[in-house]
């Protein structure tokens, strides 16, 4: 499934690049959403890694006795460095002030 997710995120970036290349400014939406998707999945992988670390360490789950952090270091996690740079570079575009809060 990790590979499927990578393909989807990659396809989103490629779609945006293609649209921009065709002169469609709206293609930038794919780049922004691609960045958000990449970071969302990186966060999921990081949470999975954290949970496994707790299971292997303090809780002492036998099934994870030989667990090492590198076991959960998936490409989606370290490749997220690139979109993270994108967020820092375009931080004003990722401000969430354009969205109202749920329940309001």
């Amino acid at each position: 499934m990790g590979a499927f997710v990578l393909v989807i995120v990659g396809a989103t970036f490629l779609w945006g690049s293609w649209e921009i290349h065709q002169g469609m400014d709206e293609g930038i939406a794919y780049i922004y959403v691609g960045i958000v998707l990449a970071l969302a999945f990186a966060m999921i992988y990081a949470l999975v890694m954290g949970a496994n670390a707790v299971e292997a360490g303090p809780i002492g789950n036998e099934d994870l006795s030989d667990w090492e952090a590198s076991d959960d270091l998936r490409p989606g996690l370290y490749l997220a460095v690139l979109p993270l740079i994108g967020v820092i570079a375009w931080r004003d575009r990722f401000r969430l002030s354009g969205l109202t809060k749920a329940g309001k």
Binding site: T12, W15, E26, I28, A29, Y30, Y32, V33, G34, G98, L99
Partner: peptide, 10 residues
């Protein structure tokens, strides 16, 4: 495009 439009586009 509003943020909602952008997200919806994708």
């Amino acid at each position: 495009m509003s943020p909602s439009d952008m997200i919806d586009r994708v």
